[in-house]
């Protein structure tokens, strides 16, 4: 990890909110508001990998799309290299988008089936009017080599490739404009274990060689731990904890983080144990619980938790948590009534 003194902030996210309005009922008269992202504050530093984990409906993918400028925020700010994405004019946004690229989960649906590898990887360069002709082809070949695709594959179509190779095409395409930041949205989740390892190693190699910053969004904790420098945990549109990866795994402060880590199956039968199961299901983001959103499932919840929303604060250096009773203060916590 980068030492804290020399860290340069590349993204500053302030009180970020994204609410979607859904209509239902007869004549769509009933309006419900889905609070997909509801007040996020965090920074991303240049050259780091920030992992964002959480279960379905926590808002992690929406957060990624907001940071790419693919969605407009309902409230709050996303400051990319000291400029707010929302206040950029068209030309500025176009430039910013060259620096912000994305790799999607499904390499089967994110690549146009009628385009060859050359067209897929070269398209962004043509769209932005940077290169064409022979120069373009040479650059595409260079990118292919960088991500481990062989030269003779240049005229093939996506369906001729396996999942892992398609993900390599997606990565080469994302790299074509020489971006600063890549948002990896579940980039390895659909891949087999042996292929997942290849892609994770490739992402690490590229980061070292090209000074990339990654925002790695995923639900698979082992992969996130492997690749991230810092990890944020989201629950129902909120960031509940954010810390350096070892701090987070060794000393989770939020009861939800603890439960999430505990639920990951460990690939060693000798460590088989009973899990500290958390009860119940994830509530709907259109009707989130009052106070702390985790309180109905939290084994330590008190009256205060159901009424007051906990403040997201830095309790240890570089370790943020939103909980009235973070786990280090376990002794001070009122005994849960069973």
């Amino acid at each position: 990890m980068i030492a804290s003194k020399e860290r340069t902030v590349i993204f500053e996210v302030k009180n970020l909110k994204k609410h979607f309005e859904l209509s239902k009922g007869m004549f769509k008269k009933q309006k419900t508001i889905v609070r997909a992202v509801d007040g996020l504050n965090f920074r991303v530093y240049e050259g780091e990998t920030l992992g964002i984990v959480g279960e379905s409906g926590c808002g992690k993918s929406t957060t990624g799309q907001l940071m790419l400028g693919m969605l407009d925020a309902t409230d709050g700010q996303i400051i990319f290299r000291s400029q707010d994405l929302a206040t950029m004019n068209k030309e500025e946004l176009r430039k910013a988008r060259r620096d912000l690229q994305v790799i999607f989960q499904d390499p089967f649906s994110s690549l146009n089936p009628r385009m060859t590898v050359e067209e897929l990887i070269g398209e962004p360069l043509i769209v932005h009017g940077i290169m064409k002709g022979k120069e373009l082809r040479a650059h595409v070949l260079e990118l292919m080599q960088l991500v481990g695709l062989r030269e003779h594959m240049i005229n093939r179509y996506p369906h001729e490739f396996s999942g892992g190779q398609r993900q390599r095409i997606g990565i080469a395409r994302a790299l074509s404009l020489n971006p600063k930041v890549i948002v990896c949205d579940e980039a390895v989740s659909a891949l087999d274990v042996s292929i997942q390892a290849q892609i994770l190693n490739l992402l690490n190699k590229l980061q070292r060689e090209l000074d990339l910053t990654y925002i790695f969004i995923a639900h698979g904790l082992p992969a996130v731990r492997h690749i991230s420098d810092r990890i944020g945990v989201m629950y129902l549109g909120k960031m509940v904890e954010l810390a350096g990866r070892d701090d987070l795994f060794n000393q989770p402060l939020h009861p939800y983080t603890h439960a999430l880590l505990d639920a990951v199956p460990i690939p060693d039968p000798k460590l088989r144990k009973e899990h500290d199961l958390i009860e119940g299901e994830i509530p709907s983001p259109s009707n989130p619980p009052s106070g702390c959103r985790f309180h109905p499932r939290c084994p330590y919840a008190t009256d205060k938790c159901s009424k007051e929303e906990p403040e997201y604060r830095e309790v240890l250096p570089d370790h943020f948590v939103a909980c009235h009773y973070p786990l280090t203060e376990v002794a001070k916590r009122p005994v849960p009534s069973v």
Partner: peptide, 11 residues
């Protein structure tokens, strides 16, 4: 090739 949650390796 599985990333381990308790044992981080470089590659």
């Amino acid at each position: 090739s599985m990333p381990k949650i308790h044992d981080v390796v470089d590659e």
